[in-house]
Design a protein around this nucleic acid. Structure first.
Lengths: 334, 334
DNA sequence: TTGTAAGCGTTATCAC
DNA sequence: GTGATAACGCTTACAA
């Protein structure tokens, strides 16, 4: 692989000049510019990104921490950020933490080792302290889906509690009183926040929480399926289920239908996230919209603005309100 | 951010020694080793990956070219490769081509600029020549879903034609004679291969291709929906539809049901890909299984073996046979 | 406008 | 075992 030196010799100029035409950092006479360009073509020259980063102290890349590479949620997160960055010639480096503390830390260390110009983190297991430390250490960090007081202005999240509150209240307004809840793993703060929103909504309407109507899932179909099965087989009566997220809802629906019951005729369901498939399944899922793609795009815009000093616009609040998407999985029983 | 120099001074040793304890490339007395380790901890040292790559001519990273960051297919591709690489301390660099020739080329150039030790490409628009050139230029390349004669041994793909043939024949065996086809974009070779498999199956059973029963979609729901709508509104009679992929099938099902018809009672449907959601929708989709995750994992294993000289095992053939997954979207009409 | 040369933070080859 | 020191391929003052 040819180097800048070979190009410079081939073109009969100095390395500095080659660098200049590559980066447009200084005026170069058209004639020499062409010579250099030709030399680059002929040799099939490709600048070594590592050498560039090392010399310029800029990597032009942004680190992205996610939990998994598959799954619609993270897909939207990656796509939303990439779309914005791509338009500004910035690259993303993606690393997955797999919901494991050790792996998540390794992933961040990797991104830091790559000297990313900024980090967008969807951290599930990393402690507040760790995150604060990184931010204080000079790296520009944006946290997705977390709210740490000490990092105000660097957090982008939705109001999980409010979303869940809204979903629950929505069912109550439709006449439901016995409303079950299938929670996400309670070590996840968003799962806790969502569960809390459910409780608050019940409280507001003077409905007392029935422990028999609450199960913990895993935020995936399997957990939703199992939790709903337990609920159904327990004999407790309920007419609706609030699910910690859409995937949980999918599983719950399967369990319900497997028992010959119908959604929403026998049991109403609401989800949370509004994944792409939620509008494709039957019945179309009534759920809480989580604008993750937009949030990711917003994170990108902020970085473009703050780190790369591009004068963008469009910055919204840190905390985004969730909104209800009414579809066909809830029946009014008033 | 501290450098190796600062660490060495802090520990009272040379840079070389620090490098040695980092990489374990040579024996270091336990006592000095501890000193160095402590110095690293105290300073919060993180090796600069760019400097490492530059000096060692190894990036320990593998470039991955995909079309999109979202979507179940690419999600599985990324996840399959990452899982294997992660276990061997290798990192992946992902770049998306968005099905656009210019962007796809840029994406590859980026990966090459990062001096990836190897490339795993799911290239949609890049020409055979371009790919061959890269491979000849020294970079270790594996092509997913393509079969270029000059690059035998570096291609990993499934037999699209056979898969589609099987799906079509499956319907024929179930008694269907008027079988429509919703193709993928015909500029994509896999879409063409799949279409060809359909034609061959019809031919084998002496059913002539009816042009009125073929529509071109876009490999997404929208295209499936529109194509199926056209088909249904055209007045041509058919009892089954072979879809270019599962997403197309989802769209087709929507269109069919929107007209008050039932799948599979009125019209049978088969897909291709076997996406995760195909077993969740109703009716569960009968489709051709495309083991993309395994293929990606296999690509990773080969690279581990060929580039990093790790002695692995498990390498299968370049061409993987597709297999039928029988579910509930096909009705026997014999 | 162009060239020279000193870094950038590592690894790797020598000596010692 | 450990320490100098020359690469690695580029950017960027500083000169010319």
């Amino acid at each position: 692989m040819p180097t800048i030196k070979e190009v410079s010799e081939h073109a009969g100029v100095s390395q500095a000049t080659v660098s200049r035409v590559m980066n447009g950092t200084a005026k170069v006479v058209e004639e020499t510019r062409v010579k250099v360009l030709n030399a680059m073509k002929e040799l099939g020259y490709r600048p070594n990104a590592h050498a560039q980063s090392l010399a310029s102290n800029r990597s032009n890349s942004i680190g992205l921490l996610i939990s998994e590479f598959d799954g619609p949620f993270y897909g939207a997160l990656m796509a939303g950020a990439e779309e914005i960055f791509r338009k500004h010639k910035k690259r993303i480096l993606i690393s997955a933490g797999h919901g494991d503390e050790k792996l998540e830390k390794e992933a961040v260390e990797f991104l830091l080792g790559c000297r990313c110009d900024a980090l967008v983190l969807h951290a599930e297991t990393l402690s507040d302290e760790y995150l604060i430390e990184q931010a204080n250490q000079g790296t520009h960090v944006i946290l997705i889906n977390r709210n740490i007081a000490e990092m105000e202005g660097q957090c982008l999240y939705i109001d999980n509690e409010q979303g869940s509150f809204m979903a629950t209240e929505y069912l109550i307004e439709k006449g439901h009183k016995n409303i079950a809840y299938i929670a996400g793993p309670q070590w996840k703060h968003d799962a806790r926040e969502r569960f809390w929103g459910y409780q608050k909504a019940l409280g507001k309407h003077n409905i007392s929480l029935q422990l028999g109507l609450v199960e913990e899932g895993n935020f995936r179909e399997s957990g939703g399926y199992q939790a709903a099965s337990k609920l159904l087989d327990s004999g407790h009566k309920f007419t609706a289920v609030v699910c910690g997220n859409d995937q949980t809802a999918y599983g719950a629906i399967s369990a319900i239908e497997e028992r010959g019951l119908k959604v929403p005729d026998d049991i109403s369901i609401v989800g949370f996230d509004d994944l792409p498939y939620s509008s494709l399944i039957k019945p179309k899922l009534t759920t809480v919209h989580f604008p993750i793609r937009q949030i990711a795009a917003e994170a990108a815009r902020r970085i473009l603005q703050d780190v790369y000093k591009e004068k963008n616009t469009h910055t919204f609040n840190s905390c985004v309100q969730a909104s209800m998407v009414e579809r066909n999985s809830v029946k009014s029983i008033t």
